[in-house]
Design a protein around this nucleic acid. Structure first.
Lengths: 336, 336
DNA sequence: TTGTAAGCGTTATCAC
DNA sequence: GTGATAACGCTTACAA
């Protein structure tokens, strides 16, 4: 392995000068600089970032902790984060918490001992979270997509309430009246917010009823089951608000089994805009979450902290969704 | 920041002993070990991996280079790799080449200067690849999913030929005779292999004809377009082999526009098994690629090299796909 | 079993 | 502008 010392020796300057050349310091005489660069090339020298990090106490690495790498929900987020960090010269340690709080804490400890410069955390949902531990992490941390009560950290989240409200409003405006919600798990905050959005829109229009609420989890199977329940129980359903696209998918197939047509007999509103929702038949009207931008925003918050704004107030970004109007919701009197 | 020295001082032993405790060396007297552990806890000491790496010349980090992080195709692969590395105590540097060969080479250089212990590379397809550069990387490299001619590295790839052959055979066995292929880009090796698989199966059964070949890229739009072409050109098509699930999706919608029914009027065979293929209506019969296992295999090859098997012969794993029989292919005389 | 000290490859300080 | 050298926090001979 060729080091800075070898370069120094071969080019007849000191290690300090070589270091300055490598780091593009202006102060180096042009002649020396050229000589050093030449030797670097001929010897195939490669700077050792580990050594530099040890000396500088800065690694230019950040940790990204995701509950599940393979989830299509996070892939755009990861991309947004990855792109933004790359532009700024940072590398990513990608870690997966597997939705397990112990694992998440272990990862954080490991990352800290690698002297990363900051952490972007998509937190696991957990009642057993050690707030003290999280709060006392000595490097910048940005939370994404999930709030943790009692934690004072910069955060970027999606506007679940607003999205659900808008989605439901859209259904109502288009003349739908009996609109059950196909919900997620009770303890999910995201779902709770979506639920509240739906509820508020329904109440505002005097359409709210307790028996319009169905609960399951965020899966296709659950969507299928809830939709069947809804169809069995309630009469005259003219639309349904699925609180995730996966649920909507399940709903679609349940409706199909009932020999009803979407959107003619019943409209389906999704939530989340997963990849492929637009390719379904009928394509799914849904709320798109701009994950790529959420990722970019998280990075800018993080880099801001890393560059020293430690006294700045905690900021909370709430990113709005976008209604994607496609074919699964019936729009009356639409001009041809 | 508390260091090993502080621990040594407080616990009345030497830094060497502390180091041994941290690294679980047996040789430490139990009494000292306990004392040291106690001090470590009370001071909240955290080992500095950077310093350890510099000293040990080993980082326990590996680089993973992916063309596109957000692609659903790679998410399972990333998960397989991530899980397997984690079990073995390694961390991942996730990098994205954006399908750009310059970027890929830059990433490799960066990773090398971070002293990672090995690289798992999903290579960009490129005619302008610098083989010499790749071949001379001084740490273990495992290639995944794409072969590079002239490069002697361990590799794990998917059996595109076999998968396409099996898929086509399946169609033929089930009484389909006129089976166009909806193909990918000409320069894609993966597609070329799938094409050959299809061709061989067709020829073996005297079904092959030049005019059954359509070409586009691996996208929904291309699938749509190719399917329309096929329907316009050829008569009596009873099945179609889409060389990717995305293409199959496009084909499905084209067929729908033609007011034909899948699978009654025409069968559709996909390739790749993307997430959601099983949720389509009709659900897509396709070839599943076991990406998770491909990832795990790649890791085991890499770790094998890292642990010193440098003289071992290059190994090439060809992982077989699995036919997922669902609803988009018509199976005659099926008992009810 | 433990302590001492050299060394890992860089950066940064401070004379010159 | 440059060179010498201490420092970064840890591991690892080697000696005790």
């Amino acid at each position: 392995m060729v080091t800075i010392k070898d370069i120094a020796r071969k080019s007849g300057v000191s290690v300090g000068t070589v270091s300055n050349v490598i780091n593009n310091l202006e102060s180096v005489k042009i002649k020396n600089k050229e000589k050093v660069l030449e030797v670097i090339n001929s010897l195939g020298y490669r700077p050792n970032k580990i050594a530099a990090s040890l000396s500088k106490k800065k690694t230019m690495n950040v940790g990204l902790i995701v509950p599940d790498v393979s989830s299509p929900f996070y892939s755009d987020l990861i991309k947004g984060i990855s792109d933004a960090l790359e532009i700024n010269g940072y590398n990513i340690f990608l870690c997966e918490s597997n939705n397990n709080i112990q694992k998440e804490e272990k990862i954080i400890r490991d990352l800290l001992s690698m002297w990363i410069d900051g952490i972007i955390l998509i937190p696991v949902y957990s009642k057993k979270r050690n707030l003290h531990f999280l709060e006392n992490i000595e490097i910048p941390v940005v939370l994404v997509n999930r709030e943790i009560e009692g934690i004072k950290k910069d955060i970027v989240i999606f506007d679940n309430f607003g999205g659900a409200f808008e989605a439901t409003q859209f259904l109502i405006k288009n003349n739908h009246k009996k609109i059950p919600i196909l919900g997620g798990p009770e303890l999910s905050k995201s779902f709770e917010e979506r639920f509240q959005g739906w509820k508020e829109a329904m109440e505002e229009n005097n359409l709210y009823k307790d028996n319009l609420i169905f609960r399951g989890d965020f899966s296709v199977e659950a969507g299928h089951k809830m939709m069947l329940e809804a169809l069995n129980k309630a009469d005259g359903i003219d639309a349904v608000f699925a609180s995730s696209d996966l649920i909507a998918l399940g709903a679609l197939s349940a409706i199909d089994e009932y020999n009803l047509k979407v959107p003619d007999d019943i409209s389906v509103m999704g939530f989340g805009d997963i990849y492929l929702s637009k390719f379904l038949k009928p394509s799914l009207t849904t709320i798109r979450r701009p994950f790529y931008n959420i990722g970019k925003t998280a990075v800018s918050l993080l880099l801001d902290r890393i560059s020293g704004n430690t006294q700045k107030k905690i900021t909370k970004f709430i990113i709005k969704g976008k209604l994607e109007i496609r074919d699964s919701v019936k729009i009356p009197d639409q001009p041809e």
